[in-house]
Each structure stands twice: as C-alpha cells, then as structure tokens.
C-alpha cells in the first residue's frame, strides 16, 4: 500500500540514473543559467542578511540596514545566549530532538525488519496500519494529546515531547526502512541462522550494518521537522527552563522586538545546527525529500 500517488521508495537512487544522457543541450541556454543563479541569490540573500545582521550592533542596523558586518561584533550572541536564555533553549532542543530521533529510528528499524521478512498476513495488515500514519495530520490531535499527557504527568516534560515525536516519526521511518530491507538478499540471514545465530543476533550483527545508509537518511530527515516544530512545545511545555528553541524564540521576540541584532543572533542560533546538518548530510536530506517519488 502506498499513501500517495506514485509512491515508490526506489527514488533513493534516482539522481544518478539521468546523468548518462546529459549530452543533450540544456533548456534555455545562457539566459536560463542567469535566471537560475539569480534565483539562487533570491533563496540565499535573506539568509545571508540574517547572519550578517547578527554580527552588527543595533545602532548600526538602524542607521544602515544594508551595511557590511565589519568589524564583527559578537555582543548580540553573548546577549541572546546568556540574558536571552538561548543556552537553555538550545540544550533542550538538542535533548528532545536527538532523543526522539534515536527512539523512532530504533523501534522503526526493528519493526521494519519484521515487516519486510514476516510472511504471516498480520504483517501486511500492520504495515498498512503504520503507513496510514503518513497522512495523519497529527497536529489536529493536540487536545487529546494534551489530556493524555495531563493524565500521565507528562505536561511540561521534555520526556513527553521525546515520546510524542518518537511516535510521530514511526510511519515515515518504517516506510523507508521496510523498502530497504526488502531489497537485501535473504541468503545472508539463512547462512547466519545455519551457523546458530538467533533472530536477534542476525538482526543486530548482519542486518543493521547493511541498512546503515537508510537509517542515516531516516535519522537526518526526521531531525529537521522535530527541531523546527512549534505547536507541541507551545502547548505542552509550561516553564521557560523547559522551552525548546522555536518557543523560546517567540518569548525572546516578544520581549526584545526592537533589539534587532539580538533577535537576529537568536534566529541564527536556532538555524545553525540545521545548516551544519545539511552541509554534512546533503545526500540524506535530498534522499528523504524525494523518498517515495516515482523515478
């Protein structure tokens, strides 16, 4: 079952195939080249302006918003990091995101293995159940989640967010990983079992190392929406010392709306981990974005 038109996970490798026939002329010639690089500027300049402005003082920003960030001033970062509590928000975001990504990746890898190899009909049924979650707008269930958390003592708890995000990442992770497990030959497992390895040993020693690329895609790709999510921490967290970056940012913006350079620093602090992740793992993010597309 696939939840969207044309969903097939084969596109994880789609980029490579088309390169062979690149001998043909590109559409639009030089004009198109100019347009394409021009659009790259449109995409990037606002982000560069954000970084440049964060290194300038407030007075500089007001007198000349487009001036050069020279000499570099890190005063706004010091202010945001200590006075603005961004050190706390940053630690919370890191804890919640890493915890949730680890949780959903581990449980989804185990489940995907069984779903890919299990022959009983119940596994087909369970797979369909998990994949139905790909299209569930989970944010609409915020009220029941709120009362569920209230009953479990998970309001204002970072652990609660880890469980919540861990659960919401299960469908996508299972979708990508199951497809990947299916592509692996069964001979390896049969050989391991003949040598007396248990199912668990086969899974941990043989299978997990083989699916590492898919695990990386899933982990990297899930990191982004969890790091950026706003509604759940807004509703489920109470005290500032538990806030993640997006919610902390709204508090900071509300109290310092005219302290432009410190706000810019806060925006950069919230964004830097994602930029780093993107530079280190471009391939996984692109694969995640196109996962499930037709070739």
């Amino acid at each position: 079952m696939s939840a969207l038109p044309g969903l097939r996970a084969g596109a994880l490798t789609a980029g490579r195939r088309s390169r062979a026939r690149s001998s043909q002329k590109p559409v639009g010639g030089v004009t198109a080249s100019l347009l394409l690089w021009g659009y790259a500027a449109v995409a990037l300049v606002p982000l560069l302006l954000m970084v440049a402005s964060s290194f300038r003082s407030n007075a500089d920003l007001i007198s000349d918003p487009l001036g050069a960030p020279w000499p570099l001033s890190v005063a706004s970062y010091k202010e945001a990091w200590t006075v603005g509590n961004f050190a706390t928000y940053f630690a919370n975001s890191l804890l919640v995101t890493c915890g949730a990504v680890a949780l959903s990746t581990v449980v989804a890898t185990m489940a995907a293995y069984a779903l890919a190899r299990g022959r009983s009909r119940i596994f087909r049924w369970l797979e369909a159940l998990f994949l139905s979650g790909l299209m569930l707008p989970i944010h609409l269930a915020i009220l029941p989640i709120f009362y569920l958390f209230d009953g479990m003592g998970l309001i204002d708890s970072r652990l609660g967010l880890v469980l919540m995000y861990g659960a919401s990442g299960v469908p996508f992770s299972i979708f990508v990983l199951t497809t990947f497990f299916r592509q692996l030959p069964v001979e390896l497992e049969e050989a391991a079992q003949l040598d007396g390895a248990s199912t668990w040993q086969t899974f941990v020693r043989i299978m997990v190392p083989l699916v590492r690329p898919a695990v990386a895609t899933v982990a990297v790709f899930r990191f982004v929406p969890i790091w950026n999510d706003f509604l759940f921490p807004l509703v489920l967290l109470r005290r500032e010392e538990k806030y993640t970056l997006p919610v902390g940012l709204t508090t900071f913006f509300g109290e310092n709306a005219t302290n432009y350079s410190a706000v810019f620093a806060g925006l950069v602090i919230t964004t830097v981990p994602l930029i780093l992740l993107f530079l280190l793992a471009t391939k996984q993010i692109v694969a995640g974005l196109t996962a499930g597309m037709t070739k």
Partner: peptide, 23 residues
C-alpha cells in the same frame, strides 16, 4: 511469527498510544 511480533511491538505500542489513540 512470534519473534516478528516482538520486533514490531515497541513501534506499535509507541505509535498506538501517542498517535492512533489521540487521533
């Protein structure tokens, strides 16, 4: 089938409690 279900169980419990039940 039994070991397969044990592999699926953690994901199913997590997904059931925090996604399906609230939905």
């Amino acid at each position: 089938r039994r070991s397969g279900l044990l592999f699926v169980a953690p994901a199913l419990i997590l997904f059931g409690v925090f996604v399906l039940y609230p939905m």
